[in-house]
């Protein structure tokens, strides 16, 4: 049905093909670091403030910075207009996924007694919000000059129509597929997040993970180019 005869997916992609990715950094002038990222029609804006003086005295850690992630989904982001409250359990859960993903990667011990705020805004939702949020956060953190041991690249994969496929869109996601989101450090291939909400047969798991890992490596190429171009551009401007 969604697969046609030559093995293409519903939007004409091959199984191991990502959607078109566009990314830019430094889109907000007030934030210390910011990034805008599109995975096909999924659009996310990330803003990073800090490391800065911690606002809540009680939470301050004397030897490291605290990470604070807030996620907001625009009411107009999906097909049906819907306002989500700030305390929506799903949003809080997603925000804590992002936080847990970055805690082992950000070298927080360099910034004692301070706080790093990450604000994420989903502008349009077409599947794979979590992966887009993680990738946008990586770009924004690097733009803010915050020390990290490596990039964090995220990608989803799932079992669609008897085949493993990566970067599922909204239609593929909603048609009762099992979907895995993984976040990977591309240099060491370490995984900092593996999240799955439905059941997947154990025989298929390895193939799905392998594809997701490959997707992460592809994401890395795109993200690294964005960061490198921006850094070279700034360096060149400063030498004039």
């Amino acid at each position: 049905m969604s697969h046609n005869q030559i093995g293409l997916r519903i939007d004409g992609r091959r199984p191991a093909e990502l959607r078109k990715i566009t990314s830019t950094t430094c889109v907000l002038s007030q934030a210390d670091g910011s990034a805008y990222l599109e995975h096909g029609n999924t659009k996310v804006l990330a803003a990073v403030y800090g490391p800065r003086e911690a606002r809540h005295r009680a939470l301050v850690l004397h030897d490291r910075a605290i990470l604070n992630v807030e996620l907001n989904v625009a009411p107009f982001s999906s097909g049906e207009r819907r306002r989500r409250s700030k305390n929506d359990k799903r949003l809080l859960e997603m925000a804590s996924f992002v936080k847990q993903t970055f805690e082992p990667v950000v070298i927080a011990t360099l910034y004692p007694r301070s706080q790093i705020d990450i604000y994420l805004q989903v502008i349009q939702h077409d599947g794979g919000t979590l992966q887009a949020c993680i990738n946008a956060t990586t770009l924004a953190l690097i733009d803010a000059g915050i020390a990290m041991t490596d990039y964090v690249c995220a990608c989803t994969a799932g079992w669609v129509e008897r085949e493993a496929a990566i970067d599922l869109n909204y239609i593929e996601e909603s048609s009762d597929t099992s979907e895995v989101t993984i976040a990977m450090l591309p240099k060491s291939s370490k995984i900092t997040l593996a999240q799955m909400e439905s059941r997947l047969h154990v025989d298929k798991l390895e193939e799905v993970f392998r594809l997701a890992g490959e997707g992460c490596k592809q994401m890395y190429e795109v993200m690294d180019k964005t960061i490198r171009d921006r850094a070279e551009d700034l360096a060149r401007k400063m030498t004039v």
């Binding site: 020390a147 990290m148 490596d150 990039y151 450090l185 490198r228 850094a231 070279e232 360096a235 060149r236």
Partner: peptide, 8 residues
């Protein structure tokens, strides 16, 4: 002259 590096 311009050695730009990225994390990792």
């Amino acid at each position: 002259t311009l050695h730009v590096v990225t994390p990792g």
